[in-house]
Every structure is written in C-alpha cells, then in structure tokens.
C-alpha cells in the first residue's frame, strides 16, 4: 500500500510539468499576439514593444516558459488586466467558493443518488424502477445552464423560496475566512444567520450541478444492488431467514462506498468544468465565473491560472480516489 502510494505521488511531478507546458502553450502561444492583446486595440507599435519587453514576451518561448514556471512556483501568476490585481490573490479568493459548490453538489449527489439506485435495484423492473431509469436518462441530457434557469424561475422567482444568485445577501457580511467555505466558516464563527443564508444560497446551484451525478450514481448503485442480490451467499442468508434489510445493509453498504468513489473519480473533472456554466447562471463568485469574464475580456493570465488550478485539483482528487480504491480493494494496489 505504501509503495503504491509513493508510486502514485511520484507520478504527479511529470504530470504537473506537462500540464503547465500545455497550459502555457494554450495561453501564451496560441493567441499569436499576446502583447498586442495586453496593450489593447489602439496601442502604437512602440507601446506594444514596451509591453512585450515588460512582460518578457520578446524572449524566446523556452525562456518565457522558464520565467513563467519559476513565477508560478513562487505563487506569482502575473497580473490580471481586468482587475489590475495579482491573479494569485484573485484565485485564492475565488477557488474556495468553487470548491464549496463542488463538494456540496457531490454530497447532494450521494445523498440522493444512492437511495434512488437502491430502491430501483430492489424493485427491479417495477414501475418505480422504470420511472427512475427514465428520470436518470433525461437528467444526463439536461443542459445545466437550462436546468439552472428553470430552477431559478420556479424556486427563486415564482415561489420565492430560495435566493436567486450569489453566496450571501448584501446585508449579511461574510464570516471571517478560515477555510473559505462560508458554511463552515460561519459555523466556526458561531454566526447562525450567515450559516443559514449561505446554505440557502448553495441549494439551487449545487442541485443544478448534482443532477447528472445523481443519475450516474443511481445507475451504478442499481446495477451493483441487483448483482449483490443475485449472489449465492445472499440467497443463502435469505433462506436462513435473515431480514432483507440486514442483508442489504451488510453487503450493499460496501457497494455504496465503491459506487461513491467511482462517481467522484468520474465526476470531479466534469463538475469543475461545469462550474463555468453554473457559476454564470447563479452569479457564484468562483473561478469558473472569473475565468469566463477573463476570457470575454481577452485577459489571459487568469485563464492560464484557472486552467492550471483546475488541472491540479483534478489530479489531486484522482490521486485520493485511487488511494481509497486501494484501501477498499487491496487487489488494486497489488497491481503496481
């Protein structure tokens, strides 16, 4: 197990170097004329050259990459043209908001998806099962930005049950930052009003993001429940008269754990990608919205930084998932 863990961690370094090169090429080489973009459309040739010299854009590409990567290692992602602030600071502010949303939607997906799949598996081929199957298939085809708008329309505008957008209302001040997750920070500070509001603000965007994962985990859970119920040992225990609820709990709970891991492995990247859409719909001040605004303003430093940050989070999340797989199933870790 330890060897497997070390092996996996050792693999991260080349991956990160490759990722930074890829992102660098997309952000600095692809646009063709980054200095011209930074200087703006009305700049003179001299102004452009001055900017190119200032940002080191007149240097050969490998030199530029070296400068960039040493800067990143020191926590310097350059400045945003749009906000005029260092990108690293912006990122530190926006990343926790995105992660809070991603975690909360994973939590919702597990909370809702596992029981759904379990019910569908137990009542296989019943009307309930069919309904769940049709629902999950539709859920996977639902565009998130459309779902978000519909939820806003129904629960925010027509019923006025839940807030439309943002993380907190203007009148409530955010809790002092510890983790950057408003729900956790407000609990640490003992501020129940802020906790209540931040939770209410989370529900719609998290539900929007969770719909497709709910469908997937329900499908995984359904088929693993069916598989378990057909096993000989389960049939034997049934014949011995053990209550089905006990049998289910005993074997299916283990499956629930591995279904959850599979889901997280499958969906972390997808969720991080979809924050771009969901954050736009709900004006959620995370890195997705930040990246979108940066792209629309042709502001490349934030785009590079966000892409890199998402890649790193994705790599780390997959590492954790793979390690936990190893814990759950020793066969996996013995392979390497």
């Amino acid at each position: 197990m330890l060897r497997y863990a070390l092996f996996r961690i050792a693999l991260i370094a080349p991956l990160l170097i490759g990722l930074s090169m890829l992102v660098f090429v997309i952000g600095r080489v692809l646009p063709g004329d980054p200095a011209g973009l930074a200087a703006g459309p009305y700049a003179t040739m001299e102004q452009r050259e001055a900017i190119a010299a200032e940002y080191g854009l007149d240097q050969p590409i490998p030199v530029q990459y070296w400068r960039y990567i040493t800067g990143v290692l020191e926590g310097d992602f350059g400045r945003s043209l749009m906000t005029r602030r260092p990108v690293a600071g912006d990122l530190a502010g926006y990343l926790p908001a995105t992660l809070e949303l991603v975690f909360f939607s994973l939590f919702l997906a597990i909370l809702i998806g596992i029981p759904l799949g379990l019910i569908a598996g137990i009542r296989r081929n019943s009307a309930t099962d069919m309904t769940i199957a049709a629902g999950t298939l539709s859920a996977m085809s639902m565009p998130q930005f459309f779902l978000g708008l519909v939820l806003q329309l129904i629960f925010g505008m027509m019923l006025s049950w839940l807030p439309l957008s943002g993380r907190l209302p203007f009148i409530v001040s955010p809790p002092p930052g510890v983790t950057g997750f408003y729900t956790i920070d407000s609990l640490i500070a003992g501020d129940l009003t802020a906790f209540r509001y931040s939770l209410l603000h989370l529900i719609l965007p998290a539900l929007t993001m969770a719909l497709a994962p709910i469908a997937t985990i329900a499908r995984i859970m359904r088929s693993s429940t069916i598989e378990v119920l057909q096993q000989d040992y389960v049939q034997t225990e049934r014949a011995l008269g053990l209550p089905s609820s006990l049998i289910l709990f005993k074997y299916v709970s283990k499956n629930a754990a591995s279904a959850t891991l599979t889901l997280i492995g499958l969906y972390v990247g997808w969720l991080l990608g979809s924050t771009v859409l969901v954050e736009k719909v709900f004006d959620w001040p995370g890195i997705g919205l930040y990246a979108t605004n940066a792209i629309l303003n042709q502001d490349f430093n934030p785009v590079i930084a966000v892409t890199l940050a998402i890649g790193v989070v994705f790599i780390l999340a997959n590492l954790v998932v793979d390690m936990l797989y190893g814990v759950l199933n020793p066969k996996v870790s013995n392979k390497q």
Binding site: L15, G18, L19, L22, V23, I26, G27, L30, P31, G269, W270, L272, G273, S274, V276, L277, A291, T292, I295, Q298, F300, V303, I304, V306, T307, I310, G311, F314, I315
Partner: peptide
C-alpha cells in the same frame, strides 16, 4: 493522458479564447 487531465469544457474555452 495529459490533455485528459483538463476538463474538456475548460480546455475548449481556453483554446477558443486563444
């Protein structure tokens, strides 16, 4: 594998922006 470490939508956005 490297390209797969980035969510497709984010990668496409960055390339489209470039």
């Amino acid at each position: 594998d490297l390209v797969l470490t980035l969510p497709a939508l984010i990668l496409a956005m960055a390339i489209a922006a470039g």
